[in-house]
Write a protein that binds this DNA or RNA. Structure first.
Length: 144
DNA sequence: AGCATGACGGTTA
DNA sequence: TTAACCGCCATGC
């Protein structure tokens, strides 16, 4: 099995997982990594989004994949090479009703307690590991 | 061919 | 408590 295929599968899994993020909610790279079954590679998740195709004809692209709903575990929009990108991401999130606050150093923060989306691992993953204990989840989407 | 980088996260000092 | 280090691996040079 070629690694290329595995890499492609990884990209596919990541994009699919990101699409599961509800409108107006955000999650972290690490959580996506867990969802796809590779909790040790949150970095690669970022790579996937970085290379997310803009081609509207592609199966996954900026239009059908809510890449903006993915931030780092600190609840901050990961600053990348192009500052405009992070600012754009913040704008996109606010457009969905997500409140983004700016720190003293200009870091764009999102309150996980308010907009965080951290569901349990996908059934397919749970079936393999059969986790005996379930971590507490507080997905309280009690807003209309 | 190989080396440096990076949209991260957890662990160690 | 905060700061630094390591792992992970696709992409870019």
């Amino acid at each position: 099995m070629a690694r290329s295929d595995e890499a492609a599968a990884f990209f596919h899994a990541v994009y699919s997982a990101v699409q599961e993020i509800p409108h107006g909610k955000v999650t972290s790279y690490g959580h996506i990594a867990k969802l796809v079954g590779t909790p040790q590679r949150p970095r690669q998740v970022g790579v996937c989004l970085k290379h997310l195709p803009s081609d509207p004809d592609a199966r996954f692209n900026h239009t059908n994949v809510p890449w903006q709903r993915v931030i780092n575990a600190k609840g901050i929009i990961s600053p990348r090479s192009q500052p405009s990108g992070s600012l754009n991401q913040a704008a996109e999130l606010e457009a969905e009703g997500v409140t983004v606050t700016t720190g003293a150093l200009g870091e764009l923060m999102v309150d996980f307690a308010e907009f965080g989306w951290f569901p349990n691992i996908l059934p397919s993953e749970a079936a393999q590991g059969a986790v005996p204990e379930d971590d507490d989840d507080d997905d309280d989407d009690s807003e209309s």
